[in-house]
Design a binder for these strands. Structure first.
Lengths: 236, 236
DNA sequence: AAGTGGTCTAGACCACTTG
DNA sequence: AAGTGGTCTAGACCACTTT
């Protein structure tokens, strides 16, 4: 399993910052020489990282460290689409920003011990000009130390892109659990829903490398005009 | 793209029935000789089919044509799990069986022209002894000609396993769209829900090889004690 | 023209399963 | 021991991008 060791080292380069998002990797021959393996073995390691969207290969140009920009976010992590019509990037409006002790559920999802601090961020996401999603995010203060509302609001990229560029936290995968619930009063207000309405609730745990949990997020989605799409393909 | 041609031929062998589900393939060296390519090229073709769960490799034993048995069905296509606790195979009870003209929605999902006939099957799926899912299935009469209620009920495997063994239709992937809705009267009765309750609605189109649609299914899930789980990993 | 990744080959050696 | 898939190597040649 030599190629696993090569993959590990490439991940380490990314986590340590010596290979920054967007930057080019050395060519495959040089990597092979550096790791003292054949080019085929390097290719196998890179193949997996490309499949995980961590690296990006372009024939004739080179191999680059993946950036969590809008395109990738939409493709990999944003599953809400209009019932009829095509995908659209949501407009994100910050609703609340605070810091307090983790609840038991949050602590378990994020793998925290004791009553550690978490940042809490609430957003309302608009699609086609209307509020559709109410997000409640919890992230560990220890992993995102120094985060504040001003910097968060001033970011120029996606939330995951901001985690990556400002804190070196690259989200590579996520698990979600979905259910139908009646809307809660706070979400109803934010989503302009009246009385008793069903919403799609999504609990997501997002992971960085090595399946280390980085973010716990609960979303409430008004699915009157939007669907959550899921594709069941080859699972590795 | 030699390996694509090899993959095509292997798929043809499965579709034509010359390689039956559960049967062993020739070894890699023999396949290489038959297709006049190197072993590495055969391996690449088989790699993809293994990733799609069409083939199954076992070191030291051989490579086998995948069967759509309970294990694979649960792993690849059944996403409803108890909120706390582990996965369980549902007990499927037939509720209705009929044949009539396709609705416009069904015709579009199944790629049918005109007013072709479809079989309609309704099931209630039980988990932990209670009714949890109300399924409405539509499949084209042309693809499943000769299907009848007696044979369907007498099947000894999963529904997808039955499609495969009785009609040579292997389901390899599916697209789903989810939303939260208020339960409809017929589902409410079947799921023992009273009054206004939210349910998770899932519209699924299941495909056989070459992305040919084979089944359209709408499920209504009582998510009081169960979740739909979705894993966002490398997407190819 | 030079440099990159993409495909394919031929073969060595290893790990596992079966008789 | 014989047969299977699993990993790794070294190198040829092709396709694409940049200068």
């Amino acid at each position: 399993m030599l190629y696993r060791q090569v993959k590990r080292q490439l991940i380490n380069d990314i986590q340590s910052g010596s290979a920054a998002p967007g930057a080019a990797l050395p060519n495959e021959k040089d990597l092979a020489q550096r790791f003292q393996v054949s080019v085929g073995t390097v290719r196998r390691a890179v193949d997996e990282l490309v499949a995980e969207h961590v690296l990006l290969r372009q024939q004739g140009r080179g191999t680059f460290v993946g950036k969590l920009d809008r395109e990738r976010f939409m493709f990999q992590f944003f599953k809400i689409v209009p019932r009829d019509g095509s995908s659209e990037f949501p407009e994100v409006r910050l609703h609340k920003f605070s810091k307090s002790r983790a609840t038991q559920v949050e602590a378990q999802a994020l793998g925290l011990h004791g009553n550690q601090l978490v940042f809490r961020i609430e957003n309302v996401l608009h699609l086609q000009g209307k509020p559709v999603i109410h997000d409640k995010i919890a992230i560990a203060e220890s992993m995102f130390s120094g985060l504040n509302q001003t910097a968060f609001t001033a970011r120029t990229t996606t939330i995951y892109g901001y985690y990556q560029s400002a804190f070196g936290v690259t989200i590579v995968e996520a698990d979600e659990r979905l259910r139908a619930e009646m809307v809660l009063p706070d979400s109803a207000r934010l989503l302009n829903l009246e009385g008793a309405a069903p919403v799609l609730r999504i609990d997501r745990v997002a992971y960085t490398f090595d399946r280390k949990p980085a973010e716990f997020r609960t979303s409430f989605v008004d699915t009157q005009n939007f669907d959550y799409v899921s594709r069941m393909r080859e699972t590795t």
